[in-house]
């Protein structure tokens, strides 16, 4: 530009951050987690992530064409949905079910509301909630991490024919001859047998679980990087984690043999991934600074309550969906007072 002074009307933004840029950065932050998932669970995890992302992109393209809005795939947000969905599913999840989850998530959770910016809830979690209700057995079938030959062969259930029951993995797992493999995630072991697996394992990902939720440490690093890049509101993950830890603390102090410790609560299950990458969904979270803190604390404590007292082992998915649902209400409660007015009522 060769003009000397550029005069503009307000707002005077220092830099223009496009939706596309934000989304690309988030994808970038998710890549190490995906890479670790593939390293951990092998080819099956790779195919799973490719399926969810591919179907999510196709669904977005299909609905944007149907609605005549032009192609909205290029804003990258649907790639995040696909990747996140893949990361929350068990590594041996049948691909056809993963495709159903991705389609339902994008179609029902996003496209029907009008696309990006209009969705009430996190699309990836909508998809996961649907398959959780539709295929409750398949979504709780776990396979061991670091299986020998995981880059040469697939987990048998991955390539199940569409509409058929997943191929049983029992004999395959038994063939691996792993010591101490019980098929249960640390959360389930804690809930039903009240034994806390070693924390370092949960932190570094040496456990059973969904493809991308096992290493709390890696997720934490990626999330922190994203927050440092100012691509997410750090208040949300921090308050989610604080809410979870604070809710778990009194129970643990009262009866440590029965209830999990706050550290265990933070590092186990999908809480870390959900706090950094799902609760912080820009569209579905409240817009005020005070609101996001309330929203985060609410999700965190609801997660722990569902985990401790609900029928489900992991509660973070429903906690976030409920959090998304009350998000607008929190936003309207926490509207800042208009400068110069005396009470909130005067806003009308």
């Amino acid at each position: 530009m060769d003009k000397g002074i550029e005069i503009r009307t307000s707002p005077h933004l220092k830099r223009v951050v496009s939706v596309e840029k934000i989304m690309r950065t988030v994808v970038l932050a998710l890549l190490p987690i995906c890479a670790f998932a593939v390293y951990q669970f092998g080819l099956s995890a790779l195919l799973l992530l490719a399926t969810t992302t591919g179907v999510a992109i196709w669904t977005e393209w299909f609905f944007s064409r149907l609605s005549g809005k032009g192609n909205t795939v290029s804003d990258w947000s649907v790639v995040i949905t696909g990747l996140l969905l893949g990361l929350t599913l068990p590594p041996g999840f049948p691909l056809w079910m993963a495709a159903v989850a991705a389609f339902v998530g994008v179609a029902l959770g996003k496209a029907l509301f009008g696309g990006l910016g209009y969705n009430v809830m996190n699309p990836a979690l909508v998809g996961r909630a649907f398959v959780q209700a539709a295929f409750p057995v398949a979504i709780t079938t776990w396979t061991p991490a670091f299986a020998p030959g995981r880059f040469a062969e697939l987990i048998p259930s991955t390539l199940t024919l569409p509409f058929m029951q997943p191929i049983p993995v029992d004999t395959w797992v038994a063939g691996l001859q792993l010591d101490g493999w019980s098929g249960a995630t640390p959360l389930a072991i804690q809930k039903f047998q009240h034994i806390e697996p070693p924390l370092t394992d949960a932190f570094t990902g040496m456990i059973a679980g969904s493809a991308g939720e096992t290493s709390a440490l890696l997720i934490l690093i990626c999330g922190l990087w994203l927050a440092w890049q100012r691509m997410l509101d750090w208040r949300i993950p921090v308050s989610v984690l604080a809410g979870a830890a604070l809710t778990a603390l009194p129970f643990w102090l009262a009866d440590a043999s029965h209830y999990p410790s706050p550290w265990f609560v933070l590092s186990s299950g999908g809480l870390m991934l959900a706090a950094w990458f799902m609760a912080s969904d820009m569209v579905a979270s409240p817009v005020t600074a005070r609101g996001v803190v309330i929203y985060g604390l609410f999700i965190g404590s609801l997660t722990v309550i569902i985990r401790l007292f609900g029928g489900l082992v992991e509660g973070v998915m429903y906690a976030i969906l409920i959090g998304n649902a009350v998000g607008p209400l929190i936003s309207s409660w926490t509207q800042p007072r208009v400068y110069g007015t005396s009470s909130r009522k005067s806003q009308g």
Partner: peptide, 16 residues
């Protein structure tokens, strides 16, 4: 209607 190992979509017979 289907072979024996058809995977039922349990959510469909539930209220949702």
């Amino acid at each position: 209607l289907f072979p024996a190992d058809f995977q039922p979509w349990i959510v469909m017979i539930l209220p949702p």
